[in-house]
Amino acid sequence: MTATFELILCVMILGTACVALFVRDFLTAIAFFVVFGNLLGLAWLAMGAVNVALAEIAIGAGVTGVLLVLTRSRLLALGEEIACGPARPWLRLGAAAACSAFTTLLAAAVLSIAPGDDLAPVVDGLMPRIGLDNPVTGVLMAFRAYDTLLESFVLLGALVAVWSLAPPAAWPQPPVALRMADPAALNVAGSFGRLLLPVALVMAAYLVWVGSDRPGGAFQGGTVLAGGFLLAAMGGAIGLPRSDDPRLRWALVAGPLVFLAIGLAGAATGRFLAYPDGTAKALIVTIEYVLAFSIGVTLALLVAGPPARAGTGP
C-alpha cells in the first residue's frame, strides 16, 4: 500500500464523512454513511487489521446501514417529518468543541503508544498455550474473555431495550414484516434471499472456523448470518418469529449462556473464564459457534424492531 493510495483514501473518508454530516436529505446521508464505513474498512485493511476491517464493513456499514434505512421508513410511516433545520450557533459550536476535544484525546492516546510496545510479544508468547494462531481471537476469547462475555450480554440487553418499546397491545406479536409489499419486487428479492441464506450459513460457519487461525470470528460470522436472515425475510422466504417463542428465546440466550457456563466451569476448576490446559481451543470454538448463532439472530431482530400489531408499519 503506497503513500499515495493512503492519502487518497484519507481524503475520500473525510469527504464522505462530511457529505454524510452536512447533506440535508436523510437517505443521501445514509448512502454516504455506508460508503464511509466501507472506505473505513479499506483503511483498516491497509493497516493490516483485517479483523477490524471485517467487523467495520459487516456491522458498521452493512447492518447499521440497513438499520438506518428501516428507521427512516418507519418514521415516514408514522407520519414524522424528517427534517434537520439549521441548529442554533451555540449548539454547533458546543458540538464542534466537544468533538474536537474528544478527537484530540483519542489522538493523544493513540500517539502515546510507543512503537516498540511490549504487548504483541507477550500475546505471541501465550498463544501456543491456547492452541490458536489468530492473536485477535486469542485476546477476545481467552486473555480478555470477560470483555467479550459482557459484550454478548450488552447485545442481548439492546434487544430487550428495543422490545420494551413495543406497544402493550402488540406484545408478543412478531415485529413488522420485512417482506416487500410489491409482488414483483417480492419475487426478485425472494429469489435472492432464498439463494443467499444457505450461502450466508456456510459463509458464517467458515468465518467462525477460520477465526481460530486467520481473520474471522463470532461477531463477523454472526453478522453475515444476520444479513442472510434479513435478506431472506425481505424476500418473504422466512417469517419473523413471535417474541415469546421459546425456541427464539433459547436461540437468543444460547451464546451468552454457553459462554457463561464454560466460564463458571473454569471457576470451579481454577479461575473464572480460564480454560483447562489442552481444552482451550475446543472450548473456544464451541463458544464461538454458539455465540455466532445468537449474535446473528439478535442482530437480525434488532434491525427488525419491536413487536408490532399485524397490519401496521411500512
Binding site: 419486487a185 428479492a189 429469489s191 435472492f192 439463494l195
Partner: peptide, 16 residues
C-alpha cells in the same frame, strides 16, 4: 456475488 447483488438491486431500483 457482486453480479448477483448488482442485478437484484438494479431490478428493485428500476421498479421503484
Amino acid at each position: 456475488f457482486a453480479i448477483l447483488a448488482a442485478g437484484t438491486s438494479a431490478q428493485l431500483m428500476a421498479r421503484v
